[in-house]
Design a protein around this nucleic acid. Structure first.
Length: 806
DNA sequence: ACAGATTAGTTTTTT
DNA sequence: ACTAATCTGT
C-alpha cells in the first residue's frame, strides 16, 4: 500500500518506533528540530491505518497555529478523515458549551479576555472599597490566574488564608477571587483559566461523563507536554484512566512557561504516573548546523536541574554563531536591518528567511523602525493586539451582547457608543435597579422601559414629604458601608432607596432612549443577517458607528476604517470556514482565543519579529536574537527572584531561541540601550560566557569588522548624555536647515519652539519659552506665563501657538 | 454630556 | 512610552 510507505518514509529508527507504537502510554522526549510534529502526525495516520476511528483520536497542541498546521498535515495524510486537533482551551470551550448547564452557565457563555478581567477586578476592588490601598488590579488578576491554574477554588483559597494568615496581598486576593467568580457567573462568562478549571470540575464531579469522554477519546496525543499546568495535567489524566493510550511529546529543555503555572515535573514524572510507559528519545537534529547546535548545547549544559541529553546532527558544520556588538540599541537595530537588506539585495536570501527574536515586546519598535527605513518587509507576531483596538472591541461588544445579553461588560461598553444620551447617571441607576431585581443590565433595561413614571407634581410631593428622613437614612447607610463589611443585611436594605424609587429617578426621556437601544440590539440577529460578516456590516450601518467614529480624515481615522474592514473580512473568513455551523459564539471564540503567533504567515515573504516565547516550534534559516544583556536575557525579574529555577528557565528560553536557527545565528548586544526613554549602559549577559561564538563589532558606518578580543563596555553613556545635554541649546527654529542637515528629530516635529519665543496657550494666555527638552515625541517645552507661573508641555500634544520672537 | 487636555499608572514572557 | 482615567471648559 502506498500509504504504508508514506507513513514510514524517511524516518529514523526511533521516529519509526514512536509512529508505530500502538496502545499504552508513550513518552517521546524530543529535542529541538528532531521532527516531532512529523512523528505525531504520522502516528495519527498510523493509528487510523490500524483501524482506529478518527473520532476516537484527540490531538492537543498549545497554539492554534500548531493545531492548524497539524490538522493540515493530518488531512494530507488522511484526506477526509476528521481527527480532532485543538488547543486545550478550544477543546474545553467546545465541550463545555454542550454541557454548560452542568457548571451553572448557559451554552452561549462569553469568554472574557484580559481587559475584561481587569475591568471586573477593578469593579470588585471598588465594591470592597479597597481602592485606596493602591493595589494593582493587574497583579491581582495575575495571582488569581496562577491560583486557578493550580486548581485552587475560591473557597479553599480563602480557607487556607484563614488557617495560616497569608501575606496581606493574598488576603486581598482571597477577598476578590470569590466575588470575581460571581461576577463572571452573572455575566454568563468565563475567563481563559476557567475554561480549564470548569472542565476539570465537570470531569471530576460527573464520573459518568468522565468515563464517556475517556471512552470517546481512546487515543490522546499531547504536544509540548513540558508546558502543561496543573489543570491541563488533571484533564489529560482524567481522559486516560480506562484507556491509557496517552502519547505525550515534549522537551524539558524547552519548558518556558513556568511563570504561568506550567509544571516541568509533569513530563519528568510521566514514567512514574504511568509505569507501563514506553520511552522514546529523539535526539537527532535535522534543523541546525553543527556549530549552532554545539553552542546551544553548551549553553543548556549549564542547567543543573536537568536530565542530560545529547544533540546530534549530520548537517554541515556551518559558520560560527556570531555576536554583534553595537554601541547603541539604535545602531543594533540599524545594523540588523542593513544586514538583512544587503543579503536580500545580493540575492543570498529573501526576507522570509530571517527572524528577529527579543525578550520583551517593547523591543520590537526600534527594529520595526529600522526595517522600515531600509524598506524591508516585516511582520510582527502580535495578532492579539488587533483585538485590543477600541473600535474592534466596540464592534465585538455588539456581537457579544447580541449573543449573550447577560454580558454586563459588553452592555456597559456600547450602551452609549455611539453617544445616545445614556450617560453615567442613567447607567448608574440602571445598575442599581438591576442589582435589586437580580437582573442582568440588558434585561433590566428591557423591563424598566415599561415602568411608568409618575407625574412630576406627584414626585415633588412625595419627595417633599419624605425628603429629610430619607436623606438622613441614606447618609447613615453610606457611613456604615464605609467600614462595615459587605454582608447583605435585608434591614440595611430598607434604608436604601427601593427599586421603585430608583426606577422613578430614571427620567422618561432616558427610558425612551434605553428603549431605542434595546430595540436596536433586539433587532440584530445572526439569523436575520445570515452571516457574521453581514451582521457586523448591519451593526456598523444601523448604529451609525462609522459616522461617529470612522469618518475623520486623520491618519488614525484611516487606520480605524482599515481595522473595521479587517474585522469584517475576518468574520467573512469565519463564515466561509464554518459554513452552516456558524454561530456568534463560534466567531467570538476565534477572536478571544487568538494568540500572537497565530498571525505569522510563513508565506508572507517578510522578516518575522517576535518574542522568544512565541518562537517556540518555529524555524528560520537566519535568526537574530537581540539584547543579550544582563537584566534582559536573563530578565531582571528572574535575577531578582534569586531562584535558580527561574534563572534556568531564562537559559532554556535562550536555548529555544538559538535552536530555531537553521544556518546562521546572530546574537546581538548594545552597549547603551534606551530604557524607559533614558539611555542606560548595559552589562553583557552572563549566558554569553556559556556558549561559543565569534565576536564582531557593528560600527557606526554599519560595517561589520572583526574584533580581536571582546572588550568591556566603554563609557559611551557619558558621551551620549553629554550630547543630549548640549542638544537643547541648539535653536530649533529652522526646520529647513534641519532638513538639510539630515537631522530627523527636528524634521519630524509638528512645531518648533526656541527659548525666547512668545507663545499663546488657550488657558494660561501669553508666555515666553524658557526651556526646551527631549527629542521627538518626548520633546517638552517649558513656558513662563505672564503671571509668573511656569508650565511644561509635551510638544506633540500641547495647544501652544507660537506668536513670534521677543 | 462631551471633547480635548492633562495626569497617573504601568510592562516579561501568553492560552 | 502608551493607554486609561480624570479633569475642565463648553
Amino acid at each position: 500500500m502506498s500509504s504504508d510507505t508514506a507513513i514510514f518514509d524517511g524516518l529514523t529508527p526511533p521516529q519509526r518506533d514512536a509512529v508505530d507504537h500502538f496502545e499504552g502510554p508513550l513518552l517521546v522526549l524530543a529535542g529541538p528540530g528532531s521532527g516531532k510534529t512529523r512523528v505525531i502526525t504520522r502516528r495519527i495516520a498510523r493509528l487510523v491505518e490500524r483501524g482506529v476511528h478518527p473520532r476516537n483520536i484527540l490531538a492537543i497542541t498549545f497554539t492554534n497555529k500548531a493545531a492548524r498546521e497539524m490538522q493540515e498535515r493530518v488531512d494530507t495524510l488522511l484526506p477526509s478523515s476528521r481527527v480532532w486537533v485543538s488547543t486545550f482551551h478550544r477543546f474545553c470551550a467546545s465541550l463545555l458549551r454542550r454541557r454548560a448547564h452542568l457548571i451553572g452557565l448557559e451554552s452561549n457563555f462569553a469568554i472574557f479576555d484580559k481587559s475584561d478581567q481587569l475591568q471586573i477586578v477593578k469593579q470588585v476592588l471598588g465594591d470592597l472599597s479597597l481602592d485606596e490601598v493602591r493595589i494593582s488590579p493587574a497583579k491581582i488578576a495575575a495571582r488569581m490566574s496562577r491560583i486557578k491554574n493550580d486548581l485552587v477554588d475560591p473557597e479553599s483559597f480563602k480557607r487556607s488564608m484563614d488557617e495560616h494568615v497569608g501575606e496581606p496581598f493574598d488576603m486581598v486576593v482571597s477577598q476578590v477571587y470569590p466575588r470575581y467568580q460571581e461576577a463572571l457567573l452573572q455575566s454568563n462568562a468565563v475567563d481563559f483559566d476557567d475554561l480549564l478549571l470548569h472542565m476539570v470540575r465537570l470531569l471530576g464531579d460527573n464520573p459518568d461523563l468522565r468515563e464517556e469522554f475517556d471512552q470517546r477519546f481512546k487515543f490522546v496525543l499531547v504536544d509540548e507536554y513540558q508546558d502543561t499546568n496543573a489543570a491541563q495535567y488533571a484533564i489529560v489524566r482524567m481522559l486516560a484512566v480506562n484507556q491509557p493510550n496517552l502519547c505525550v511529546t515534549g522537551d524539558p529543555d524547552q519548558s518556558i512557561y513556568g511563570w504561568r503555572g506550567a509544571h516541568i515535573d509533569n513530563i519528568l514524572n510521566f514514567e512514574r504516573d504511568f509505569p507501563a510507559a514506553k520511552l522514546i528519545r529523539l535526539e537527532h537534529n535535522f534543523r541546525s548546523t553543527k556549530q549552532i547546535l554545539a553552542s546551544a548545547d553548551r549553553l543548556i549544559g549549564h542547567n543543573r536541574l536537568r536530565k542530560a541529553k545529547s544533540l546530534i546532527t549530520d548537517n554541515e558544520e556551518g559558520c560560527p554563531v556570531r555576536l554583534l556588538r553595537a554601541p547603541t540599541s539604535h545602531q543594533e537595530a540599524e545594523g540588523i536591518a542593513r544586514i538583512i537588506q544587503r543579503t536580500c539585495e545580493q540575492g543570498d536570501g529573501r526576507p522570509s528567511d530571517f527572524a528577529i527574536f527579543y525578550r520583551v515586546n517593547s523591543m520590537s519598535r526600534e527594529l520595526e523602525l529600522a526595517l522600515t527605513r531600509h524598506r524591508v518587509a516585516f511582520q510582527v507576531a502580535a495578532g492579539a493586539a488587533f483585538y485590543d483596538r477600541s473600535e474592534i472591541k466596540d464592534l465585538l461588544a455588539y456581537l457579544r451582547l447580541i449573543e449573550n445579553p447577560s454580558d454586563a461588560l459588553a452592555f456597559a461598553r456600547i450602551v452609549n457608543k455611539p453617544a445616545r444620551g445614556l450617560g453615567a447617571a442613567t447607567i448608574n441607576r440602571l445598575q442599581k435597579w438591576a442589582a435589586l431585581q437580580g437582573l442582568s443590565l440588558f434585561e433590566a433595561a428591557r423591563q424598566i422601559v415599561n415602568t411608568k413614571n409618575v407625574r412630576k407634581t406627584k414626585i415633588k410631593k412625595s419627595k417633599a414629604s419624605r425628603s429629610k428622613p430619607v436623606d438622613d437614612e441614606d447618609e447613615l447607610a453610606e457611613d456604615e458601608n464605609l467600614d462595615a463589611d459587605l454582608s447583605f443585611d435585608p434591614s440595611e436594605f430598607a434604608a436604601e432607596p427601593t427599586a421603585d424609587e430608583i426606577a422613578q429617578k430614571i427620567s422618561a426621556a432616558a427610558k425612551f432612549k434605553l428603549k431605542i437601544f434595546v430595540n436596536l440590539i433586539e433587532g440584530f440577529s445572526l439569523a436575520s443577517a445570515g452571516s457574521v460578516s453581514g451582521l457586523l456590516k448591519t451593526i456598523v450601518d444601523k448604529t451609525f458607528y462609522s459616522k461617529h467614529y470612522l469618518s475623520g480624515q486623520t491618519e488614525q481615522d484611516f487606520e480605524r476604517r482599515a481595522n473595521v474592514a479587517e474585522l469584517i473580512s475576518a468574520a467573512a473568513q469565519y463564515d466561509e470556514v464554518a459554513g452552516d455551523e456558524r454561530t456568534l459564539s463560534g466567531f467570538l471564540e476565534t477572536t478571544s482565543l487568538v494568540s500572537d503567533t497565530d498571525t505569522v504567515d510563513p508565506q508572507a515573504g517578510k522578516v518575522t519579529l517576535m518574542t522568544l516565547h512565541a518562537a517556540k516550534g518555529l524555524e528560520f534559516p537566519t535568526v537574530f536574537i537581540v539584547g543579550l544583556e544582563h537584566g534582559l536575557i536573563p530578565h531582571e525579574r528572574a535575577i531578582k527572584s534569586d531562584d535558580p529555577k527561574q534563572l534556568e528557565e531564562e537559559r532554556r528560553l535562550l536555548f529555544v531561541g538559538m535552536t530555531r536557527a537553521m544556518k546562521v545565528l546572530y546574537l546581538t548586544t548594545a552597549q547603551v540601550r534606551d530604557e524607559r526613554g533614558t539611555p542606560r549602559s548595559t552589562i553583557s549577559s552572563s549566558f554569553l560566557r556559556e556558549c561559543d561564538f565569534e565576536s564582531l563589532e557593528l560600527t557606526a558606518t554599519g560595517l561589520v569588522s572583526r574584533v580581536d578580543e571582546p572588550h568591556e563596555a566603554t563609557d559611551r553613556l557619558a558621551e551620549l548624555k553629554k550630547r543630549l545635554a548640549q542638544a537643547p541649546n541648539r535653536p530649533m527654529l529652522t526646520t529647513g536647515a534641519a532638513l538639510l542637515n539630515g537631522s530627523q528629530e527636528a524634521a519630524e516635529l509638528p512645531q518648533c519652539f526656541a527659548v525666547g519665543m512668545q507663545v499663546r496657550h488657550p488657558r494660561y494666555g501669553v508666555g515666553t519659552v524658557v526651556d526646551v527638552n527631549g527629542f521627538a515625541k518626548r520633546r517638552t517645552v517649558t513656558v513662563q506665563f505672564a503671571d509668573e507661573r511656569t508650565e511644561s508641555f509635551s510638544v506633540a500634544h500641547c495647544p501652544l501657538q507660537p506668536i513670534g520672537m521677543r
